[in-house]
Design a protein around this nucleic acid. Structure first.
Lengths: 167, 167, 167, 167
DNA sequence: GATGAATGAGAGTTCATTCAT
DNA sequence: TATGAATGAACTCTCATTCAT
């Protein structure tokens, strides 16, 4: 708290005029980080075809996940801690990432995507973007641009409903 | 450390006969958890065709990830903390999960799987098993058995190289 | 540290606002004790002849050394501990007791005192004041006032250069 | 205690078969160190004239005090700690250094030395040997052999009774 | 007699929080 | 409203001592 106060240029006690305690400060921080991440990733999310929209989000997510920025590290860390994913956070997350969910819903309504829960579609097609990014960030692997493109394409195809050949 | 000692039914000082300090205790715990997880998930990993082997691992991973067991929570938490993935841990992880990597390598050698780094193949096809499991464990969604099977199948197909139609 | 805090009438943590750690606290204490001792012993050190100045310091040192005051006990204890006489302490000591050293230097310049290093002159003529005082403080001996005076006089004569008889 | 046991090549618990507790171990150690020091310093103490005997002891003491040997450091440290000079230690010390005391008593009986308590004679003439040695050991000064000889001689003359000129 | 694993009180230190100014 | 000195519970770790083997 002392360090936070220092960085903010205020006295330690001042924090407590704006946040009940350390927990609340962190909760608000998480919400803020989440909002930043969402804003960045969902930028221009409505432009283009469904496939273009999906791939744009995938690439933004991947590029964001590759950076060792505080926002990203904080996001990753908190997303996977047990016991800290309160209803409040979930609600915030739900609202912020609504456009992504809507994209999946549209795709299902058009008969383009697999008839699965949007969380499942997310797990199958979007999470790999982050997992790959993590490997790169940690220096475990290095990928060429075309490999990333291939991965992105495979992710898209994963959730695509196979089209019946027409006669 | 006091709580660990209590749970172990020993005095606080006793811990230090077996572990240099808190850090080492945690490191050893992580290695132990990793070994448990690997042993469980890779059980019978060599039986059957490549597809059967993949899907068996996928399902075991998924089922393990659904449980709120200490082993699983600990695994998830540490896997995503920044700055704590030391070379020692990575080495341990690498050795323990070697069979999974080998599966991917075999698939690539047979021309069956996409020519991507095995970490990429893992990200594309295995990580979704854990992500789905996490959603279920947190009560965010509920899936029918056939949906899980579909997800597993889609994951397998994701990394499959499309076969040329024969004439 | 808890005891120090208690005696100071503050909470344990408060100490750490003023001293980095236990070591620094002790270092500062030593410097403070040294300054007190020096100030007391060197009071009026410049008044009178060289002999008067020497004997005043000798008596003050002796009287100080007889007391079981914390300052004295602390002084004696630290002065003889191995490995704790850091450069910083030595520097402080050097500056604080400079007037005593100067007295010896003056005496040598006048051809009055033995041509020895001032530390040697100190060892020969001043240290006995402390050693005697220690014996008294510990109740090992009791001296009459005239005996102390004799000891002081002998100490002075010890470092005096014998004068050639004039014809 | 563990280190002591290691160095002794026994188990930690074994120490307690020979010493009641740490305090007693240290007490016995001090007595042992004292005996060693005394034996070394008082070697051949009875040979020669009083002056020769005094100067031999003085030089041995000085040379011993210059060394950073465990025995010396231990001796210095304990000799100046408050609260640790028990009657038992004092008694031991008294017996071990009896020859030195006897030397002073003989000198007084012969009308050769100042009529002061032997502890005072010690303080005036012997302690400087240790004080000088300490300065040298700590690297604060360096002396030539003839300076040490001079210091020794001055110490002897300090306690010498001035002789009446004969007619 | 000897062992050494176990003990647990106590050490120094940290840090989220409070409150008089 | 802002301050920052003071708080004290809780932390990790040490080490003299014990006792079943």
């Amino acid at each position: 708290m002392q360090q936070v106060a220092n960085e903010a240029g205020v006295a330690a006690g001042t924090i407590y005029r704006y946040f009940k305690d350390k927990n609340e400060l962190i909760l608000e921080l998480r919400k803020d980080v989440l909002a930043q991440v969402a804003a960045h990733i969902l930028e221009d999310h409505h432009l283009g075809t469904l496939e273009e929209r999906f791939k744009r989000i995938w690439m933004k997510m991947h590029n964001f996940g590759k950076q060792p920025s505080p926002a990203n590290l904080s996001y990753e860390q908190y997303a996977h801690l047990p016991e800290t994913n309160t209803d409040e956070i979930r609600n915030t997350e739900f609202k912020l990432f609504a456009p992504l969910q809507q994209l999946f819903e549209e795709g299902k309504a058009e008969g383009l995507l697999q008839p699965l829960h949007s969380r499942a579609l997310y797990a199958l097609s979007m999470e790999p973007a982050m997992t790959l990014a993590r490997s790169i960030r940690r220096g475990l692997v290095h990928y060429e641009a075309h490999e990333i493109k291939l991965a992105c394409d495979l992710c898209w195809k994963t959730i695509l409903l196979p089209t019946q050949p027409t006669h």
